[in-house]
Simulated assay, not measured.
Amino acid sequence: MDNAMMIGLSRQMTLRRSMDVVANNIANANTAGFKVESLLLENRAAPTAEHADGPSDIQFVNTWGMARDFRQGELAFTGREFDLAIEGEGFFAVEANGNEQYTRDGRFRLDGAGQLVASDGAPVLDADTRGPILIDASAGDIQVIDGGMIMQNGQQIGRIGVFEIANRAEMSKQGNGRYTIPESDDPADAPLAMLEPSVNQGFVEQSNVQSILELTDMMAVMRSYQSVSKFLEQAEDLNKRAIERLGRI
């Protein structure tokens, strides 16, 4: 395979990945707390096919990583007692599969045991105990005030854990709008910091996906893919004609 074909195919591979990312953004435009993603690319030098003259290296395009835009989405009023939204920085903490996971999705509820849980049943963690939050719903109405304190009959019964993650580049996506972070052996390098958040009760943070922009990106990716496909077809035709002429010599 010659250099032109190799470069074109490497670009097509990254365009297909970009299309997957854009399609996922559009699919999650109505997912609470979802953060829009984009593919990061880099040039990678590689030896050319053997030739008598010309450059010794060619530049391929390669996937470098994934970028996430953590800007806050709009807060939508629901009026539900256990729907919570963070205004500003930070993440809620839940326990899932034996690990702490972090999310901006505050669609919480009480399970049969009186635990405050996420929509899939993962316990929401208390800021002080880092354990489940237990609430007796029959004992009175619940209020969540600034700082994440949970109040019932004028008494604090818990505090919603809201954490700031120092290096968001180290966050690993786990699905369901959740992330994990690597553990630190050195307390001085702790990747988490407690926040005194502004938590809004009866609200849910919406996705920060802007559907019009994502549709525009999708069309741009499609046009680029078509252009590369046409380039590859022309390169193949050129190779065929060159081989035919050599055969006549």
Results as ranks from 00 to 15, higher is better:
A193F: 01
R159E: 09
G148D: 02
Q155T: 14
P182N: 05
G154V: 03
S138E: 13
D189W: 08
G147K: 12
Q206L: 01
Y179C: 11
Q210Y: 04
G147M: 11
R168V: 11
L134C: 03
N176H: 15
F163I: 02
S207P: 00
F203T: 06
Q152E: 04
M151G: 05
Q174Y: 03
I145V: 14
A137D: 12
P191I: 11
S198Y: 00
L134G: 03
G140P: 05
Q206Y: 03
S198K: 01
Q155L: 14
P191H: 11
E196S: 05
A190V: 00
Q156V: 13
E205G: 10
G161L: 04
G177Q: 05
E196A: 05
L215S: 02
G140R: 10
Q155H: 14
S198R: 09
N176R: 15
D186Q: 05
A220S: 08
I181E: 05
E170G: 04
D136T: 12
Q210G: 04
M218D: 06
N167I: 03
P197R: 11
D217L: 06
R159Q: 15
D189N: 13
S198C: 04
T180M: 12
R159F: 00
V199I: 15
N200S: 09
V199F: 08
K173G: 12
A139R: 12
M149Q: 14
D146A: 06
G154N: 08
I165Q: 11
S211F: 07
I157A: 07
P187H: 01
V221E: 07
Q155M: 13
M218S: 09
M171T: 03
Q210E: 11
I135W: 09
R168M: 14
I157K: 08
I181V: 15
E205D: 06
Y179V: 13
M149F: 14
L195F: 09
E214L: 11
S172Q: 14
N167H: 01
S211G: 07
L215I: 05
A169L: 10
L195W: 07
E214M: 11
M149C: 03
K173Q: 13
G154Y: 01
G158K: 06
A137S: 15
A190Y: 04
P182D: 01
K173A: 15
Q201W: 01
E170A: 15
R159Y: 05
V209H: 08
D141K: 13
P191T: 11
I135H: 07
F203G: 00
N167G: 00
A220M: 09
G154W: 05
N200V: 02
Q143P: 01
D189K: 09
